[in-house]
């Protein structure tokens, strides 16, 4: 039996059907409303103090620190002495984008910018230590 991810085609087909049929059901059951004056009840973004340095700090944290922290955690994972190196690299490569995206959101969403900075610097430090230990071992 071939092992070239054949079953993924079935999963992909199911997910595509799920998405399209769900959207079709939503559009077919759309509710018409005549009242255009009623105020909308939609979730509001947090209002927070704004300043130029905060914006830059958040931007830099979301762009650079999140990238380095995610790559460092991924590299530390790839260095674990479990399984074949190529498999660790492939699986780690799938984890990194999710982690990176989550860190970007943390940097931009947290009201206290220092928390994500400390968290990411900590993750970077621990991962770097693990990488160094793995390379020197």
């Amino acid at each position: 039996m071939s092992m070239s991810l054949g079953s993924v085609i079935g999963i992909a087909a199911v997910l595509l059907t799920f998405s399209l049929s769900g959207l079709l059901a939503v559009f077919l059951s759309a509710e018409r409303r005549a009242d255009r004056t009623k105020p909308a009840r939609v979730a509001e973004p947090d209002s927070r103090p704004r300043s130029r340095w905060r914006g830059w700090a958040r931007g830099m944290t979301a762009f650079f620190l999140a990238m380095f922290a995610a790559l460092a955690v991924g590299a530390a994972f790839a260095g674990l002495p479990v399984g074949a190196p190529a498999d660790r690299v492939s699986i780690g490569s799938l984890i990194v984008p999710f982690l990176w995206a989550a860190l970007v959101i943390w940097a931009l969403a947290d009201r206290k910018i220092l928390r994500p900075v400390i968290g990411m610097v900590g993750a970077l430090a621990v991962s770097s230590a693990a990488i160094a230990w793995g390379l020197l071992a």
Binding site: A78, P85, V89, S93
Partner: peptide, 16 residues
């Protein structure tokens, strides 16, 4: 980002 991600992880997994 294949080369960015792959190279970062492979450098550790394959010790450079």
């Amino acid at each position: 980002l294949f080369f960015v991600i792959f190279a970062s992880l492979a450098a550790t997994a394959y010790k450079g």
